[in-house]
Design a protein around this nucleic acid. Structure first.
Length: 261
DNA sequence: ACCTCGACCTGCAAGC
DNA sequence: TGCTTGCAGGTCGAGG
Protein backbone atom coordinates (compact mmCIF):
# COMPACT_ATOMS: atom_id res chain seq x y z
CA UNK A 1 0.00 0.00 0.00
CA UNK A 2 2.83 2.37 0.77
CA UNK A 3 3.34 4.73 -2.13
CA UNK A 4 0.26 3.43 -3.91
CA UNK A 5 -2.74 5.56 -4.68
CA UNK A 6 -6.15 4.31 -3.64
CA UNK A 7 -8.28 4.51 -6.75
CA UNK A 8 -11.50 3.33 -5.21
CA UNK A 9 -12.80 1.66 -2.07
CA UNK A 10 -15.48 -0.95 -2.15
CA UNK A 11 -17.46 -0.97 1.07
CA UNK A 12 -19.67 -4.01 1.26
CA UNK A 13 -21.46 -3.32 4.52
CA UNK A 14 -22.15 -0.27 6.66
CA UNK A 15 -20.36 -1.42 9.78
CA UNK A 16 -18.00 -3.77 11.54
CA UNK A 17 -17.89 -3.46 15.32
CA UNK A 18 -18.90 0.15 14.73
CA UNK A 19 -20.28 1.95 11.70
CA UNK A 20 -17.76 3.14 9.13
CA UNK A 21 -17.40 6.91 9.26
CA UNK A 22 -19.43 9.11 6.93
CA UNK A 23 -18.23 9.17 3.34
CA UNK A 24 -15.57 6.59 4.19
CA UNK A 25 -14.97 5.35 0.66
CA UNK A 26 -15.04 8.84 -0.85
CA UNK A 27 -12.58 10.25 1.66
CA UNK A 28 -10.10 7.51 0.80
CA UNK A 29 -10.42 7.67 -2.96
CA UNK A 30 -7.49 9.43 -4.63
CA UNK A 31 -5.29 9.42 -1.55
CA UNK A 32 -1.84 7.86 -1.47
CA UNK A 33 -0.60 5.93 1.54
CA UNK A 34 2.54 7.66 2.78
CA UNK A 35 3.33 5.38 5.69
CA UNK A 36 1.97 2.31 7.45
CA UNK A 37 2.53 2.18 11.18
CA UNK A 38 1.14 0.50 14.26
CA UNK A 39 0.12 1.61 17.72
CA UNK A 40 -0.87 -1.09 20.20
CA UNK A 41 -3.11 -3.43 18.18
CA UNK A 42 -4.14 -0.70 15.78
CA UNK A 43 -2.82 -0.29 12.25
CA UNK A 44 -2.46 3.22 10.96
CA UNK A 45 -2.13 4.32 7.33
CA UNK A 46 -1.03 7.92 6.95
CA UNK A 47 -2.54 9.32 3.78
CA UNK A 48 -1.59 12.16 1.46
CA UNK A 49 -5.03 13.67 2.04
CA UNK A 50 -4.23 14.65 5.62
CA UNK A 51 -6.35 11.81 6.94
CA UNK A 52 -5.12 8.71 8.65
CA UNK A 53 -6.90 5.39 8.33
CA UNK A 54 -7.13 3.62 11.68
CA UNK A 55 -7.72 -0.12 11.55
CA UNK A 56 -8.11 -2.97 14.01
CA UNK A 57 -8.34 -6.67 13.17
CA UNK A 58 -10.48 -7.57 16.16
CA UNK A 59 -10.30 -11.32 16.72
CA UNK A 60 -10.87 -12.67 13.25
CA UNK A 61 -9.88 -9.89 10.86
CA UNK A 62 -7.20 -10.24 8.21
CA UNK A 63 -5.91 -8.49 5.14
CA UNK A 64 -4.84 -10.12 1.96
CA UNK A 65 -3.47 -8.76 -1.26
CA UNK A 66 -5.09 -9.87 -4.46
CA UNK A 67 -4.72 -8.87 -8.04
CA UNK A 68 -7.45 -6.59 -9.28
CA UNK A 69 -10.66 -8.46 -9.86
CA UNK A 70 -9.78 -11.64 -8.02
CA UNK A 71 -11.93 -10.80 -5.02
CA UNK A 72 -14.87 -9.48 -6.98
CA UNK A 73 -18.17 -11.00 -5.84
CA UNK A 74 -18.98 -14.24 -7.54
CA UNK A 75 -15.45 -14.92 -8.65
CA UNK A 76 -14.46 -18.29 -7.29
CA UNK A 77 -15.34 -19.50 -3.81
CA UNK A 78 -12.13 -18.61 -1.98
CA UNK A 79 -12.36 -19.02 1.74
CA UNK A 80 -14.75 -16.51 3.18
CA UNK A 81 -15.65 -14.28 0.30
CA UNK A 82 -18.86 -13.66 2.21
CA UNK A 83 -16.74 -11.92 4.85
CA UNK A 84 -14.76 -9.67 2.56
CA UNK A 85 -16.07 -6.38 3.87
CA UNK A 86 -13.72 -3.76 2.43
CA UNK A 87 -11.67 -3.77 -0.76
CA UNK A 88 -9.07 -1.10 -1.44
CA UNK A 89 -8.45 -0.92 -5.18
CA UNK A 90 -4.96 0.46 -5.66
CA UNK A 91 -3.64 2.25 -8.72
CA UNK A 92 -0.86 -0.35 -8.84
CA UNK A 93 -3.46 -2.91 -9.85
CA UNK A 94 -3.45 -4.71 -6.52
CA UNK A 95 -6.50 -5.09 -4.35
CA UNK A 96 -6.14 -5.05 -0.60
CA UNK A 97 -9.01 -6.99 0.91
CA UNK A 98 -10.17 -6.87 4.50
CA UNK A 99 -11.88 -10.06 5.62
CA UNK A 100 -13.47 -10.45 9.05
CA UNK A 101 -15.97 -13.23 9.83
CA UNK A 102 -16.79 -12.09 13.35
CA UNK A 103 -16.78 -8.42 12.46
CA UNK A 104 -15.05 -7.41 15.68
CA UNK A 105 -12.70 -5.37 13.52
CA UNK A 106 -12.78 -1.63 13.28
CA UNK A 107 -11.92 1.17 10.85
CA UNK A 108 -12.06 4.90 11.23
CA UNK A 109 -10.69 8.03 9.62
CA UNK A 110 -8.96 10.69 11.69
CA UNK A 111 -7.15 13.87 10.78
CA UNK A 112 -3.48 12.92 10.96
CA UNK A 113 -2.66 15.85 13.23
CA UNK A 114 -5.11 14.47 15.78
CA UNK A 115 -4.48 10.72 15.72
CA UNK A 116 -3.16 10.71 19.26
CA UNK A 117 -6.42 12.18 20.46
CA UNK A 118 -8.55 9.50 18.88
CA UNK A 119 -10.60 7.80 21.62
CA UNK A 120 -9.13 4.42 20.71
CA UNK A 121 -5.54 5.63 21.00
CA UNK A 122 -5.46 8.14 23.79
CA UNK A 123 -4.69 6.64 27.14
CA UNK A 124 -2.78 3.68 25.73
CA UNK A 125 0.18 2.58 27.78
CA UNK A 126 3.75 2.27 26.49
CA UNK A 127 4.73 0.04 23.60
CA UNK A 128 6.12 -3.10 25.21
CA UNK A 129 9.11 -3.30 22.87
CA UNK A 130 10.11 0.33 23.38
CA UNK A 131 12.80 1.51 25.76
CA UNK A 132 10.10 3.41 27.65
CA UNK A 133 8.69 0.11 28.80
CA UNK A 134 10.88 -1.38 31.49
CA UNK A 135 10.59 -2.84 34.97
CA UNK A 136 10.15 0.59 36.53
CA UNK A 137 7.37 1.62 34.17
CA UNK A 138 5.60 -1.69 34.69
CA UNK A 139 5.93 -1.54 38.46
CA UNK A 140 4.60 2.03 38.50
CA UNK A 141 1.64 1.10 36.37
CA UNK A 142 0.81 -1.81 38.66
CA UNK A 143 1.33 0.06 41.91
CA UNK A 144 -1.82 0.17 43.97
CA UNK A 145 -3.74 -2.16 41.67
CA UNK A 146 -5.66 -4.79 43.56
CA UNK A 147 -6.66 -6.49 40.34
CA UNK A 148 -4.92 -9.75 39.34
CA UNK A 149 -1.74 -9.49 37.27
CA UNK A 150 -3.56 -11.18 34.42
CA UNK A 151 -6.15 -8.39 34.27
CA UNK A 152 -3.54 -5.67 34.68
CA UNK A 153 -1.55 -6.93 31.71
CA UNK A 154 -4.64 -7.15 29.53
CA UNK A 155 -5.36 -3.52 30.39
CA UNK A 156 -4.09 -1.56 27.39
CA UNK A 157 -3.41 1.45 29.62
CA UNK A 158 -0.83 -0.50 31.61
CA UNK A 159 1.00 -1.76 28.55
CA UNK A 160 -0.28 -1.52 24.99
CA UNK A 161 -0.79 -4.43 22.70
CA UNK A 162 -0.80 -7.57 24.83
CA UNK A 163 -3.63 -10.03 24.32
CA UNK A 164 -4.71 -13.08 26.26
CA UNK A 165 -2.18 -15.52 24.83
CA UNK A 166 0.92 -13.41 25.29
CA UNK A 167 -0.10 -12.34 28.77
CA UNK A 168 -0.43 -15.98 29.75
CA UNK A 169 2.88 -16.84 28.11
CA UNK A 170 4.76 -13.96 29.70
CA UNK A 171 3.49 -14.82 33.17
CA UNK A 172 4.71 -18.37 32.75
CA UNK A 173 8.18 -17.28 31.66
CA UNK A 174 8.36 -14.84 34.57
CA UNK A 175 7.19 -17.50 37.03
CA UNK A 176 4.31 -15.35 38.23
CA UNK A 177 0.78 -16.50 38.93
CA UNK A 178 -1.96 -14.87 36.85
CA UNK A 179 -4.00 -14.59 40.04
CA UNK A 180 -1.38 -12.68 41.92
CA UNK A 181 -2.33 -9.16 42.89
CA UNK A 182 -0.79 -6.66 40.45
CA UNK A 183 0.46 -4.31 43.15
CA UNK A 184 2.78 -6.99 44.50
CA UNK A 185 5.34 -6.45 41.76
CA UNK A 186 5.91 -2.85 42.92
CA UNK A 187 7.22 -1.61 46.22
CA UNK A 188 5.90 1.25 48.31
CA UNK A 189 8.86 3.36 47.25
CA UNK A 190 8.16 2.61 43.61
CA UNK A 191 11.32 0.62 43.11
CA UNK A 192 10.64 -2.37 40.86
CA UNK A 193 10.92 -5.75 42.46
CA UNK A 194 12.76 -8.58 40.81
CA UNK A 195 9.36 -9.92 39.75
CA UNK A 196 8.74 -6.72 37.78
CA UNK A 197 12.08 -7.11 36.05
CA UNK A 198 11.35 -10.68 35.14
CA UNK A 199 7.89 -9.79 33.90
CA UNK A 200 8.98 -6.85 31.77
CA UNK A 201 11.74 -8.96 30.25
CA UNK A 202 9.36 -11.87 29.65
CA UNK A 203 6.88 -9.62 27.85
CA UNK A 204 9.59 -8.35 25.54
CA UNK A 205 10.88 -11.85 24.96
CA UNK A 206 7.49 -13.32 24.12
CA UNK A 207 6.65 -10.56 21.65
CA UNK A 208 10.07 -10.59 20.01
CA UNK A 209 9.80 -14.35 19.54
CA UNK A 210 6.31 -14.08 18.11
CA UNK A 211 7.34 -11.41 15.62
CA UNK A 212 10.36 -13.43 14.67
CA UNK A 213 8.30 -16.54 14.04
CA UNK A 214 5.84 -14.66 11.88
CA UNK A 215 8.59 -13.38 9.66
CA UNK A 216 10.60 -16.53 9.50
CA UNK A 217 7.93 -19.09 8.72
CA UNK A 218 4.87 -19.02 6.55
CA UNK A 219 3.30 -21.90 8.39
CA UNK A 220 1.36 -22.24 11.59
CA UNK A 221 3.29 -20.92 14.51
CA UNK A 222 4.67 -23.38 16.98
CA UNK A 223 2.37 -24.02 19.91
CA UNK A 224 2.72 -21.97 23.02
CA UNK A 225 4.45 -22.69 26.31
CA UNK A 226 1.30 -22.89 28.45
CA UNK A 227 -1.56 -21.46 26.44
CA UNK A 228 -4.02 -24.21 25.47
CA UNK A 229 -1.98 -26.86 27.28
CA UNK A 230 -4.34 -27.73 30.10
CA UNK A 231 -3.43 -31.02 31.83
CA UNK A 232 -0.07 -31.22 30.07
CA UNK A 233 3.22 -31.29 31.90
CA UNK A 234 4.84 -27.93 32.54
CA UNK A 235 7.55 -27.33 29.96
CA UNK A 236 9.91 -25.55 32.29
CA UNK A 237 12.94 -27.84 32.64
CA UNK A 238 12.65 -30.14 35.65
CA UNK A 239 9.36 -28.62 36.79
CA UNK A 240 6.97 -31.41 37.83
CA UNK A 241 3.85 -29.22 37.53
CA UNK A 242 0.77 -29.87 35.41
CA UNK A 243 -0.83 -26.97 33.56
CA UNK A 244 -4.17 -25.74 34.83
CA UNK A 245 -6.81 -23.66 33.17
CA UNK A 246 -8.86 -21.10 34.97
CA UNK A 247 -11.27 -18.41 33.84
CA UNK A 248 -10.29 -14.92 34.86
CA UNK A 249 -12.14 -11.80 33.83
CA UNK A 250 -14.08 -13.89 31.38
CA UNK A 251 -11.09 -15.38 29.61
CA UNK A 252 -8.96 -18.46 29.98
CA UNK A 253 -5.72 -18.39 31.89
CA UNK A 254 -3.30 -21.30 31.71
CA UNK A 255 -0.60 -21.61 34.32
CA UNK A 256 1.63 -23.98 36.20
CA UNK A 257 0.71 -24.11 39.89
CA UNK A 258 4.22 -25.27 40.78
CA UNK A 259 6.53 -22.74 39.14
CA UNK A 260 4.22 -19.74 38.94
CA UNK A 261 3.50 -17.88 42.15
C1' DA B 1 -11.68 5.46 40.19
C1' DC B 2 -11.65 0.82 39.75
C1' DC B 3 -13.31 -3.66 38.70
C1' DT B 4 -16.15 -7.55 36.61
C1' DC B 5 -19.41 -8.94 33.48
C1' DG B 6 -22.03 -9.27 29.35
C1' DA B 7 -22.58 -8.00 24.61
C1' DC B 8 -21.08 -7.77 19.99
C1' DC B 9 -20.63 -11.90 15.78
C1' DT B 10 -19.42 -16.19 13.32
C1' DG B 11 -17.04 -20.60 13.03
C1' DC B 12 -15.55 -24.68 14.77
C1' DA B 13 -14.89 -28.77 17.72
C1' DA B 14 -16.77 -31.77 21.03
C1' DG B 15 -20.58 -34.14 22.94
C1' DC B 16 -24.93 -36.32 22.65
C1' DT C 1 -25.53 -37.41 10.49
C1' DG C 2 -27.35 -33.52 12.78
C1' DC C 3 -28.24 -30.89 16.55
C1' DT C 4 -26.65 -28.27 20.69
C1' DT C 5 -23.23 -26.30 23.51
C1' DG C 6 -19.15 -23.98 24.64
C1' DC C 7 -15.29 -21.62 23.36
C1' DA C 8 -12.26 -18.46 20.53
C1' DG C 9 -6.22 -14.27 20.10
C1' DG C 10 -10.64 -7.79 21.58
C1' DT C 11 -13.01 -3.84 23.09
C1' DC C 12 -16.61 -1.25 25.09
C1' DG C 13 -20.38 0.16 28.04
C1' DA C 14 -23.24 -0.91 31.99
C1' DG C 15 -23.39 -1.74 36.60
C1' DG C 16 -21.44 -2.96 41.29
Amino acid sequence: MVGARIDRVDLRRPDLRAPFPRRFARRLAGATTLELTRRAKYLLATLSSGDSLLMHLGMSGSFRVAKAGVSAPGRGARDGDAHDHVVFHLASGADVVFNDPRRFGFMDLVRTARVDRHPSLKGLGPEPLSAAFDAGALADACAGKRTPLKSALLDQQVVAGLGNIYVVEALHIAGLSPQRRASTIATATGAPRDSARRLAAAIKQVLAEAIDRQTSTRYRAERFRVYDREAERCRRPRCPGVIRRRTQAGRSSFYCPVCQS
